[in-house]
């Protein structure tokens, strides 16, 4: 379980990017973080991965305070992060970066398997360079493949759908669904995609640096993707998840 307590981030002093966010990511769940561009989702994800350090507040992973731990330590504690904007490396092939992600050299079969999972034809990609010659969608899928290999306890995928074609996206959805079914890993997916929202256990809305509404998919999905409050079952029960929850 990851507990985020009163997390704030103001890198330049006055401009608050994250404003006192508190939330809990339960084990074995698929949690989707959604909300408008610039709302602070990536900033929060980088804070979970240890790339950004908070101005105040804390992060607790399975009861251990990880607020001061660096990205390497957090990776070793079981946190994974698939970047929204994947990084390119001159001189690295797809094989090289996936071997690094895996921590030891992959067999050909393992390499093929993970590439197929993200919709890449292994033969055509294994030995290509991870440089500017790859398209946005290609590098994105390699990024996701690397993070999948790590089998982290908790993984944050930052807009995995971006730049990906429909075929690969379908394949990716099944990967997320399969992982979710095992209930052995925790998935945090930052997304605007209805298809991804529809497989969430919980949905949280991050807006203007704050946690807006949050709740189970059954309640949140119709609010976000359906007819708003009219279609929300909580309306009838007088149990609104909005605003101050």
């Amino acid at each position: 379980m990851l507990e985020i307590k009163n997390l704030s981030f103001a890198p330049e002093g006055d401009k608050q990017i994250l404003k006192n966010i508190s939330l809990t990511i339960p084990d074995g769940k698929l949690v989707v973080l959604t909300g408008p561009n610039g709302g602070g989702k990536t900033t929060l994800a980088k804070m979970i991965a240890g790339i950004n350090m908070p101005t105040s507040g804390s992060l607790i992973l399975d009861g251990v305070d990880i607020t001061d731990k660096d990205p390497t330590e957090r990776a070793k504690l079981g946190i994974g992060y698939a970047f929204q904007q994947p990084v390119r490396f001159k001189g690295f092939t797809v094989r090289d970066i996936l071997n690094l992600a895996n921590g030891k050299p992959l067999t050909e079969d393992q390499l093929d398997e993970v590439l197929l999972k993200v919709g890449l034809e292994p033969k055509a990609y294994k030995d290509r360079d991870v440089d500017t010659k790859l398209s946005g969608g290609e590098i994105k899928r390699i990024e996701i493949a690397g993070v999948l290999l790590r089998k982290s306890k908790l993984t944050v995928f930052d807009e995995p759908e971006a730049g990906i074609d429909l075929w690969s996206f379908n394949s990716l959805i099944s990967v997320f669904e399969e992982l979710r079914e095992t209930r052995e890993v925790t998935l945090v997916i930052i997304s605007h995609q209805e298809r991804i929202l529809s497989i969430a256990d919980e949905i949280m809305l991050i807006q203007d640096g704050r946690l807006g509404m949050k709740g189970p998919r059954e309640i949140m999905y119709p609010l976000i993707c359906g007819d708003g409050c009219e279609s929300c079952p909580a309306m009838e029960e007088g149990d609104c998840y909005g605003r101050d929850n």
Binding site: G50, P71, K76, G103
Partner: peptide, 9 residues
């Protein structure tokens, strides 16, 4: 940073 999130120092 990317490689550190993969567990490298």
């Amino acid at each position: 940073m990317k490689l550190r999130t993969l567990g490298l120092t």
